[in-house]
Computed example of a mutant assay.
Amino acid sequence: MFGISPLGWVHTLGSLPAIPAAIYMLARNGRIVPRSGSGLVYFISMLIGASTVFLVAHQPVSYVFGVLTLVLLLLGYGVGHTTVLGRATKYVETICLSLTVFLLMLPSVTETLTRVPDGHPLVTDLNSPLLHVAQGGLLLMLIVGLIAQIMSLRKQR
């Protein structure tokens, strides 16, 4: 179904819980909160998705996304356990984890539009205007979201 291999399903279903976990944390807290129940679900799910992309990827850019996601995820979750950055810790954590959401959603939206509905996908060409609008919308949400998160963190001081 949808031209996805069994390993592809492991990748897809393993990373899928990260989406509602991210939406929940962003709606409730305005950011990804690493040290929470939802944060743990997000971390594990993102780790599964980013790690398995190397086994299912067909495009070189997928490997870049996988490595970048893993680096940002580990940095975002690890920076809170150190005092090296001082007051900048929350900013680095928030920016890194917001970028992981973007790196999750960009291929998710692209893959969905190029596979659904099964047999007659909405997008058949990676240069499709619909795909570009969807990806541009995600980029706009990232930019607006990061600005709002940074402003919120500044007000909390």
Rank of each mutant, 00 (worst) to 15 (best):
M1Y: 06
F2G: 00
P6V: 07
P6W: 03
P6Q: 02
G8E: 09
G8A: 04
W9T: 02
H11R: 06
T12M: 09
L13I: 09
L13G: 04
G14P: 07
P17W: 09
A18P: 04
A21H: 05
A21C: 07
A21L: 09
Y24C: 03
L26H: 02
L26W: 08
A27F: 14
N29S: 15
G30F: 11
I32C: 02
I32D: 11
V33Y: 03
V33N: 02
P34Q: 10
R35K: 13
S36N: 07
G37H: 02
G39W: 09
L40W: 09
F43P: 01
M46T: 13
L47P: 01
I48E: 07
G49L: 06
G49Q: 07
S51T: 15
S51I: 11
S51N: 07
T52Y: 06
T52Q: 06
V53R: 15
L55H: 07
A57W: 08
H58P: 00
H58G: 15
Q59Y: 11
Q59G: 02
Q59E: 14
Q59K: 11
Y63G: 13
Y63N: 13
Y63M: 11
V64L: 15
F65I: 14
F65Q: 06
L68M: 08
T69C: 14
L72E: 08
L74S: 07
L75I: 15
G76C: 08
Y77P: 03
G78H: 03
G80I: 10
H81P: 02
H81T: 09
T82L: 14
T82P: 00
T83W: 00
T83R: 01
V84Y: 06
L85C: 06
G86C: 12
G86L: 13
G86I: 10
G86Q: 13
G86P: 04
A88T: 02
T89A: 10
T89L: 02
T89G: 05
K90C: 13
Y91V: 15
T94N: 10
I95G: 01
C96W: 05
C96K: 00
L99I: 03
V101P: 00
F102T: 08
M105A: 14
L106C: 04
P107I: 01
E111G: 05
E111Q: 12
T112K: 07
T112R: 08
L113D: 13
T114P: 04
T114K: 11
T114G: 05
V116C: 01
V116G: 01
G119V: 05
H120C: 00
L122S: 05
D125W: 02
D125N: 12
L126Q: 13
L126Y: 15
N127M: 12
N127I: 03
P129R: 11
H132V: 02
H132L: 11
V133S: 07
V133R: 04
Q135L: 15
Q135E: 15
L138R: 00
L139T: 03
L139K: 00
L140P: 00
M141K: 05
L142P: 00
G145E: 14
L146A: 01
L146K: 00
I147Q: 06
Q149V: 05
L153C: 09
L153S: 10
Q156D: 15
R157N: 08
